[in-house]
């Protein structure tokens, strides 16, 4: 078993496995720290800056992002000092200027006493948390999408803004997006994502379209499965057994 450390979060003594992040330790202790770019399935990224906390360790006081900073013995964490709240308020005002409507953003903002952005809204939808890019690379393993450009012109895109050659249309990016701005549609045996049409495979038993052909091909390849492995949909496969 991993070593345990004891720290305090907002005055509460909390024990956590060494190596876990402050955010995870807080979550386990039911202490809420708002966040948008962190996801248990992905490597910490630290881009939204919402989960900042103020820590005192060995008499040194500073702001860190709780999704990356690991717990340590004797660490003192404060999740809502004035300095922390100011950064969070700024971040929410800035994010609301990109996306003023999404309920999740509005809810976090409301928790900080913000109704609408103090900045002019230039609706872009995407808040650049990078979960889609990371899930595609880290979990799916295809890196079909990435970031283009830099500064405030940064955006999530397919290579050269063309139909993504490596995309398997699995939709992970669509599902993981916290503000739901990656559209995905299915109609007449075709899944449309990243402005590209992907044919779906038909179940040999019930005839239902159940998954993109490219996704099944990819799964067969990485898991080394026989050619006919995904001939049937999940429902028909389970009833067969």
């Amino acid at each position: 078993m991993a070593d345990m450390v004891t720290l305090t979060i907002d005055g509460r003594r909390v024990t956590a496995n060494a190596g876990t992040t402050i955010l995870e330790a807080a979550r386990d202790a039911n202490i809420d720290i708002p966040n948008l770019c962190s996801n248990e399935e992905l490597h910490p990224y630290g881009s939204c800056r919402l989960c900042m906390v103020e820590i005192t360790h060995k008499k040194r006081q500073r702001l860190v992002v709780s999704c990356i900073h690991e717990v340590a013995e004797g660490l003192e964490v404060k999740t809502a000092t004035e300095r922390v709240l100011n950064v969070r308020r700024l971040v929410m005002h800035l994010l609301l200027s990109r996306n003023s409507t999404h309920p999740r953003l509005r809810e976090i903002a409301a928790g900080l006493g913000i109704e609408k952005s103090m900045f002019p809204v230039d609706y872009k939808g995407c808040i650049l948390c990078g979960q889609c890019v990371r899930v595609c690379r880290e979990v799916v393993g295809v890196s079909a999408i990435g970031f283009k450009s830099r500064g405030d012109t940064r955006a999530v895109a397919t290579p050269f803004d063309e139909p993504p050659g490596d995309c398997i249309a699995c939709g992970s990016c669509h599902y993981v997006c916290p503000v739901g701005v990656i559209p995905m549609e299915e109609k007449d045996g075709v899944r449309r994502i990243w402005k590209t049409d992907f044919p779906m495979a038909k179940c040999s038993v019930c005839g239902k379209y159940f998954a993109p052909v490219k996704q099944l091909e990819y799964f067969r390849k990485i898991a080394n499965l026989p050619e006919n492995h995904f001939d049937t949909c999940v429902d028909c496969r389970s009833t067969k057994k």
Binding site: C48, V91, S149, G151, T153, R154
Partner: peptide, 15 residues
């Protein structure tokens, strides 16, 4: 020159 990764730098400097 901001890489655009984090919110305060990307959006804050712009504002």
């Amino acid at each position: 020159e901001s890489c655009g990764k984090c919110t305060p730098c990307r959006e804050g400097i712009y504002q």
